[in-house]
Design a binder for these strands. Structure first.
Lengths: 359, 359
DNA sequence: CTGAAAGCGCTTACAG
DNA sequence: CTGAAAGCGCTTACAG
């Protein structure tokens, strides 16, 4: 438990003389002249339970007057279902401050607010294999369901569901079968830039990426390659050391000066694309006149590059919002079955792409 | 309440045959051959309560074996103190995805995880004045304390504290007296760039900012002005329309070409500084050779500008972490008294500042 | 249509 | 040093 008993200090000093006490279901029942069961029934609009209109009105009225709000703790305990959901992520990540996932979180939090569901945040240790310890929120039964974003451990998901706590996965890896999941259409997202560039006359298109054992990265590459084949363009793969701005910049600094330089570059994400843009600037290669560049993710950064970045945008907030809706459905057992929901992507054309040079 | 009764679908189909049930304090008491009170006492390490060593060991052992974890809901209800804290913000903000505050949140979440406290997120309507409605988490008594980041309504803070729920404010506005608050040293942060620039020989320094009725912005400006006076430099104020990259860029595009152009520019934040950098690039003014630029906040963006931005950095994660520790102290009534904690700032020298031209 | 009562899983005076 | 019992504020069969 979080708290000790102890003596109040500041409040006792008179500053907060009138400490307000919450009214309870008993207060409402007494005032309205009904039983607490009846109060509970009308306030929860219990299906199957018929309460006469006058009684209902009286209860609502009294509840309003007394400013009554049911205790979430008591309700959760009695119903055996906490009124909260939780987002759990791994400790060594930077999920919250991440330029991409922070928008997913924003979407989740807003949707939860809209649905009047509290949302909790919790980390789990990386070394789940060895500890086997479930997230605190599920160990202590304070959440009705959990959302994992990004990394996840398959066995942990099983263990959590075995406790009767539904799980929804967002843009997760590794792959897991038979779990509710939400992701964006990475394959389609990989095609979009190519189609755009081919329409602009480009035939010589490089893909900048880094190795990563993740479905989203794989999907983008697959989409790129499929579109390249279909467009009759030639596929060039530029592999960076890692998924960073500077790795992409350095790679581009090496590759761009070569004589058979591609006329367009598609990057696996906006950060890499920004690195390419920087290299082009240093090499005095004009974008988009001499080189077109496309990113992926549509993160804020792309507004501020020079020129502003053409990119592929998924509905990041939607990812979070859908996950919350999905989870609440699962918790309420309204969910038909397990499935993976794929959210659409769209090309966001800004200033970094143009007709192939010499066209 | 979040949930209906209903029939399980997927789980009943055999996939999740062995639904695990949580063990309770009763189970532990029975196995260990003691009363539930004793279990509660030893597990909570209740001060003043003396339990014999052998009994303690037995209880711990059994609890471990049964994988017992106290129900947070039950404990919260019985003790009248929820085991959670909450971060509440206003609905129209972009706090979570904000380039600055997302790091504060990251720090808060991590610290909460470290302290084994659950942290909840909640929005509150903008129109508090008219609704008077407290955040859901406090209405329903599911939080032991709340943190407000950024915007806050003074009367709401009072109302919440009157419920016995302590409040901690992070980088808040407007000003409120008598509440626990954490902020960075904006005044000192305003001085730092000037001292740095003066040491580099600059005497002609402009401050780029936008009007905002916020202590943090005011503090930076005050610091800037104080340092300018002390350094014997001349103060130039460039006021933008708003706090955006493009507003700063446009203003700089107008001001920079003037003959009496300053040799250095200090911006009220990194976004404005980036805008100035962009204008300089368009005007072919070399940074830092012909112009020095300093930002504020040390957001990720500053790594990617060209050149990388010299800026003033506060400990953003620390802001969140301190707030959590502060709040937990207040909840446990260990807090001596109400106070404002000011976190130090430091100059982060990167590539956008250099000696005054002609030196 | 409504109420009395058991119970959710804990904590906490109180008694011994 | 330990236990029996009341109580936290709800929900939910069950009875009428």
């Amino acid at each position: 438990m979080l708290l000790d008993t102890g003596v109040r200090t500041q409040y006792d000093m008179g500053v907060m003389a009138a400490r307000v006490k919450k009214s309870t279901i008993k207060d409402v029942a007494r005032e309205a002249g009904v039983s607490i069961a009846t109060v509970s029934f009308v306030l929860n609009n219990r299906p199957g339970q018929v309460i006469s209109e006058p009684v209902k009105q009286r209860v609502f009225e009294v509840a309003r007057q007394l400013n009554y709000h049911p205790s979430a703790l008591a309700a959760g305990l009695a119903s055996r279902k906490p009124g909260n959901i939780a987002i759990v992520f791994y400790k060594d990540g930077d999920l919250v401050s991440n330029l991409y996932y922070s928008f997913v979180l924003e979407g989740a939090i807003r949707e939860a607010a809209r649905m009047s569901v509290n949302i909790m945040f919790s980390y789990v240790d990386e070394d789940w294999e060895t500890s086997g310890e479930l997230p605190k929120v599920v160990r202590e039964g304070s959440t009705a369901g959990v959302i994992f974003i990004n990394q996840v451990h398959p066995d942990m998901v099983r263990d959590i569901e075995r406790r009767g706590v539904p799980v929804v996965l967002v843009d997760h890896y590794p792959q897991i079968q038979g779990v509710n999941a939400i992701e964006i259409d990475n394959f389609r997202g990989g095609q979009l830039p190519v189609e755009h560039l081919v329409a602009l006359g480009h035939r010589n298109i490089a893909y900048v990426y880094a190795k990563a054992d993740r479905p989203s990265i794989r999907g983008r590459l697959d989409g790129f390659q499929a579109a390249i084949r279909r467009g009759g363009a030639s596929e060039i793969l530029w592999e960076c050391e890692e998924f960073t701005f500077y790795a992409a910049r350095d790679l581009a600094m090496k590759k761009l000066p070569q004589s058979d330089r591609p006329t367009a570059i598609v990057a696996a994400n906006d950060e890499l694309a920004s690195g390419v843009l920087r290299a082009a600037k240093h090499l005095s290669i004009k974008v988009p006149d001499e080189l077109s560049v496309v990113g992926f993710d549509n993160i804020t950064m792309g507004f501020y590059t020079d020129p502003p970045l053409t990119t592929v945008g998924g509905d990041k907030e939607g990812l979070g919002a859908h996950a919350v809706r999905r989870l609440v459905d699962a918790v309420q057992e309204r969910a038909a079955s397990v499935s993976t929901e794929v959210l659409p992507v769209a090309l966001v054309v800004r200033g970094s792409t143009g007709p192939v040079p010499g066209s």
